[in-house]
């Protein structure tokens, strides 16, 4: 079973600070990481490989250096990595076309895995977009995946209903955060992964000509949240009394 996992390098959103004067988020210098749910996708891929054999390739399109972060995924158990360098203003259209071109170059694949959504943009757009470009079936929001020899059975979590889907290969699946617990690689695994191949492909080497983004970002506005931050730490009875008084004054106890 050959599996390609699309994993995105993102800024760690919990580390974003807001510039107090402009109220805009400061994105420079924010640490980078692999988008949380993409690690669930890598974990799921490794589990499928452990069952059926085959190869797990992690694929990322990034405009900044992604090598260090991708190594973590190789340490988890992926066999090989492909990093495609993207232009600065790459939108979903551009990135999906680069992912599709890279997947076609990788060639022989049964499953393309991704996260239900990326932690920075949280669209859930890339998976189905990519499936559309590749012309293959898609199963989104999978919270359970059973890969059998010639078909996969997966449970889609659609909120008030759970839809069980079945598909032959190749298929694209996006997974939810609850599907598994991503493993933490041991020191041994980290060391052993040092020799695993990381391929860096350019747009040109994929035969992709210039891509013009379909979307243009006009502005990124800040959203400020002002809170009173009054915390009662003392005696519980006293704290409860003070809190209830404050809530009454706020006019919310009616």
């Amino acid at each position: 079973m050959n599996i390609v996992v699309c994993a995105k390098q993102v800024i760690d959103v919990s580390e974003i600070k807001v510039d107090p004067s402009t109220k805009k988020p400061v994105l420079q210098g924010v640490p980078l990481k692999i988008s949380d749910i993409d690690k669930n996708a890598v974990e799921e891929a490794i589990r499928i490989k452990e069952k059926h054999g085959g190869k797990v390739t992690v694929l990322t399109v990034s405009s900044s250096d992604a090598k260090e972060r991708v190594k973590e995924l190789l340490a988890m158990g992926a066999d090989e990595a492909v990093i495609v360098s993207a232009p600065e203003n790459a939108d979903y259209d551009v990135v999906s076309k680069l992912l599709a071109a890279a997947i076609k170059k990788i060639g022989d694949y049964d499953i393309v895995l991704g996260g239900e959504a990326s932690i920075d943009l949280f669209s859930g757009q890339m998976g189905p977009r990519l499936a559309g470009l590749l012309g293959i079936p898609q199963i989104t929001y999978a919270r359970k995946v059973d890969a059998e020899k010639d078909k996969v059975v997966a449970e889609r979590d659609v909120g008030d209903v759970v839809v069980t889907m079945e598909s032959p290969y190749p298929v694209l699946i996006t997974v939810t955060k609850e599907i598994n617990e991503p493993r933490l690689p041991s020191l041994m695994q980290i060391l052993a992964s040092a020799n695993k191949p990381i391929n860096e492909w350019s747009m040109e080497s994929l035969g992709v000509k210039e891509l013009t983004p379909k979307m243009e970002t006009v502005e990124v506005k800040g959203v400020s949240m002002e809170r009173k931050n009054i915390v009662y730490q003392d005696d519980v009875d006293e704290a409860v009394e003070k809190l209830v008084d404050s809530l009454a004054k706020e006019g919310v106890l009616r």
């Binding site: 979307m215 970002t217 800040g222």
Partner: peptide
């Protein structure tokens, strides 16, 4: 369009060229 990005930290204003 306007949409919330970075987990609620910002709003991205984007426009269509297609």
């Amino acid at each position: 369009t306007e949409r919330v990005v970075y987990s609620g930290n910002a709003i991205a204003v984007e426009r269509f060229n297609s």
